[in-house]
Structure formats: C-alpha cells, structure tokens
Amino acid sequence: MAVSAEPWRRGRAPWRRAAPEVGRYAVLLVFLAIFLVPFVWIWSSALKTSREIAQNPFALPETFRWENLEQAWTVGNFGRYLGNSVIYGVAIVGGGAVLACMAGYALASLPLPGRDGVLFVFLLGLMVPFQSVMIPLYYLLRDIKLLETYWAFIVPGIALRLPFGVFLMRGFFRGLPAEIADAARVDGANEWQVFRQIMLPLAGPGLATLVVFQFMFTWNAFLLPLVFVQRDALRPVSTGMMFFFGRYTADRALIAAGVTIAMLPVVALYLVLQRRFIEGITAGALKT
C-alpha cells in the first residue's frame, strides 16, 4: 500500500486551512469515542464492584479489583475455552489452507477436465448462507459420531470456508507466470515439487491473506459451534462466553471481567499485527 504525499490537501499551515482541520479532527474524535467508549467502560467495569457499576458508569474504580479477572477466569472456565479456540483456529486455518492452496493451484494452473463445473460449484458455495446446509449437516455429523469431538467444528468449518479459500488462492496462482513451473518440470521436478517448492512460496502474500481471513472467521464463528459443539469441554470462547453471560448475568462485575478476558487475546494480537489484519481483510475482500 503506497503512501502518497499530497501537499495539496494537507496544506502547510496557512491559517485558512486550520478551520477544516479542526472540523476533521472533531469528526474523527467523535467516532473515536463511539468506537472506544464501550470498551473503556467494560474494561473499567471489570475492575469495579457490581454496585459501583450501577452507580456511575463513567467513574474510575474506587479500588482496582483485579481479583474480578481472576475469579472470572476460574469460574468461567476461560482457560479451557480459549485453548479450544486456539485448537479450532490452528486446525481450521491450517487444514483449510492446505486444501485451498492445492485446489486453487490446480484450478489455476493444472490441466483439469470439468474445471468450469468445479469452479461453479465452489462459486455457489460463496453465495449460499450456512443455514442452507445447517440442519442436515447437524444430523450427518451426529450420525458419523463427530458431534462429540473437536471435529464437529473443524470439519464443517473447513468445508464451509473452502469456496472462499479456493477462489482467493486461485486468483493468486493465476497471477504467477506459468513459465516458472514449466522450467521446473523440464528440470525433472514432479507436480508436487513444482507446487510445494516453486509455486507455493511465490503465493506467500495470498496465503497470508487467507490465514488472516480464516482465523477471524474461526475465532468469531458463533452459529456453527452453537449448533455443532455440544460438550462444554469442547466449546470455543464464543459459545462458552454466551453460556457464561447467561449463567452469571446478575453478577455484572464478573460479566465485565469475562468479556474483558474473552476479548483480550485477540485484541492484543490485533494490536501487534494490525497492519497484517487490515491488509489481509482488504485484500481478501477486494480480490475474491
């Protein structure tokens, strides 16, 4: 993403430019408040007593009750839920990436009869909502005994996101020159080696985009684990959080602490990798 300097707009501080600048920052700051105040409020509530939360939402905590977080962590089982979310994230992002890269590569660069048909089937998958398969899928997963395992989320999670991944990776592979692959074939590389050692490394940016997108999908997925993950021990943080909210709803300080814990890991990750997140999302949306 190139940053172009454009002095025509920023204006080197002639006084006439000052008024629009004030207006611009006024608008930006209002939106900054709209986006941040709810979080600041929840985070500060996490360190208060329930009584304080009811009294004045904008006051600072009288004493910082870090023990709220500790209590929420224990009673809310967040260690387990976050751990499960990591397992789901790794499995779905990893498994989905492998399958999507291979299929995307084949659909972009290998001879394949019926390629248009395959593409069309995947294209439909991009456009139909999850609900169109949700009901039979539940019974299918039950009948093959996957509902009682981590696979209940991993397998449909990968399948549901394949169309997106395949199209994204196909787009990237199509942008690579075919001569490189041919040259490798002439040198005696087999198709797997061509893919693994030549083409895949060149699709790195596409892969990064895919990983960001799939990670966000997996971490935030709600309906899928709500329907398919029925054992508490296997719940990811999204549905685990929902049940926590229901059970302890009367204890506001505890809820605020739970919400804070549930969002901290991903917010921290986002703050560290925010450019990758944003570029990944942008590329994924605009290039598929």
């Binding site: 399958l99 999507a100 291979m102 084949a106 398969v133 039979p136 399948a159 394949l162």
Partner: peptide, 17 residues
C-alpha cells in the same frame, strides 16, 4: 490436487444442501 478439497466440500456442503 483438487480431490481432497472437492471431496470434503461435497460431503459436508453439497450433500447436505
């Protein structure tokens, strides 16, 4: 290269559809 993805997709998306 296409088979694994297509297989998974067919069983868990196309068939349920």
């Amino acid at each position: 290269f296409v088979a694994p993805a297509l297989l998974l997709y067919s069983v868990f998306m196309v068939y349920p559809f």
